[in-house]
């Protein structure tokens, strides 16, 4: 497999970040039912304020309307989707087929993930597949795009053109593994990285410094992940219950310091301040705003962060 991470694709997100602008993405979680309009409603709330919209793939191993169908809806609305794909539920045959299907609808962004273990979701008795892992999925998409070949070696007449992304968690312990693992994913072909939501700015900057020291920021676009806190309760939950999440006491204290009815507003304010601060951090090339079931706040955050209007590219 070749090592070219700068392969050009029709992705608008890629063009924007390649042109030197900060990229902005947000996400939309499909419903736990067959109502596709919910996807459209969410996309309409954020569509004009971001460059591309991530659509989660059965996130936390809970069955939801599939990412591919939701991405097609979003694409048909005139927005740019990012197809999230976890390797938990399908083998290499199913995943490659879905990648081809996505490409046939003009979907040009993918986020390659391994996926949460099914024991966390609503079907803990399910088999897990994990035929490939996230790194191998990145390699697969890259091979399909750059070599026009399936993993079998079969040569395609028309190959998918995907801007390839992956996730990174700068906060999981032990810290020393994290940059090495990112380097591996970039070596596999990742072109953009969306990080776990950031609350501990000091630790993130330390990670980012190591990323820059290894020159990884020049090989892939690092997008800082942000999730605004809706309330003190949410902050405490994130701190204590969500694995791999690093919420410093200062965040808890700041939210605790304002009346309950002002906490949401404070959460948005904190998120905007983070954007301002992160814009100055070397290597940060964009923002991934995950406003969980709070999509209506994305425009405010994007505007507040000085990221609106979104740049136009050809």
């Amino acid at each position: 497999m070749s090592t070219n991470n700068s392969a050009k694709t029709p992705s608008k997100l890629q063009k924007i970040m390649d042109a030197g602008h900060f990229g902005v993405t947000s996400e939309c979680g499909p419903p736990r039912g067959a109502d596709g309009r919910i996807v459209e409603e969410k996309a309409n709330l954020i569509g004009d304020y971001v460059d591309a919209i991530n659509v989660t793939d059965n996130q936390t191993a809970v069955v939801r309307l599939c990412s591919l169908a939701a991405c097609i809806r979003i694409k048909q609305m005139g927005f740019e989707p990012i197809l999230q794909m976890v390797s938990r539920d399908r083998n290499r045959i199913g995943m490659q087929a879905d990648i081809l299907g996505a490409a046939s609808f003009g979907i040009h962004n993918m986020l390659c993930l391994t996926g949460d273990h099914q024991s966390f979701g609503d079907h803990p008795t399910a088999v897990n597949v994990f035929d490939l892992d996230s790194t191998q999925l990145i390699q697969t998409v890259k091979m399909m795009r750059d070599e026009k070949k399936l993993l079998s070696g079969f040569e395609m007449k028309v190959a998918p053109e995907m801007f390839i992304g992956c996730a990174a968690n700068p906060f999981a312990d032990p810290f020393e593994i994290r940059v090495a693992r990112l380097a591996k994913k970039i070596a596999a072909g990742a072109q953009f990285i969306q990080t776990q939501c950031i609350y501990n700015m000091d630790k993130f900057k330390l990670w980012m410094q190591q990323v820059v020291d290894r020159g990884l920021h020049e090989k892939a676009h690092i997008m800082a992940g942000l999730t605004p806190m809706k309330s003190l309760g949410m902050a405490k939950y994130m701190k204590n219950k969500v694995p791999g999440m690093d919420v410093p006491d200062s965040v808890i204290e700041r939210l605790a310091g304002v009346p309950k009815d002002k906490q949401a507003e404070e959460g948005i304010k904190m998120c905007i301040e983070q954007i301002q601060e992160l814009k100055e951090v070397e290597g940060v090339r964009g923002f991934h705003i995950m406003a969980i079931e709070w999509e209506e706040k994305v425009p405010e955050i994007v505007k507040g962060g000085g990221l609106y209007p979104r740049p136009k590219v050809d």
Binding site: H117, Q118, S119, P124, T125, A126, V127, N128
Partner: peptide
Amino acid sequence: DPKNWATSRDGG
């Protein structure tokens, strides 16, 4: 019925 695979390798 669908089997409970959690007792198998799938459950960790």
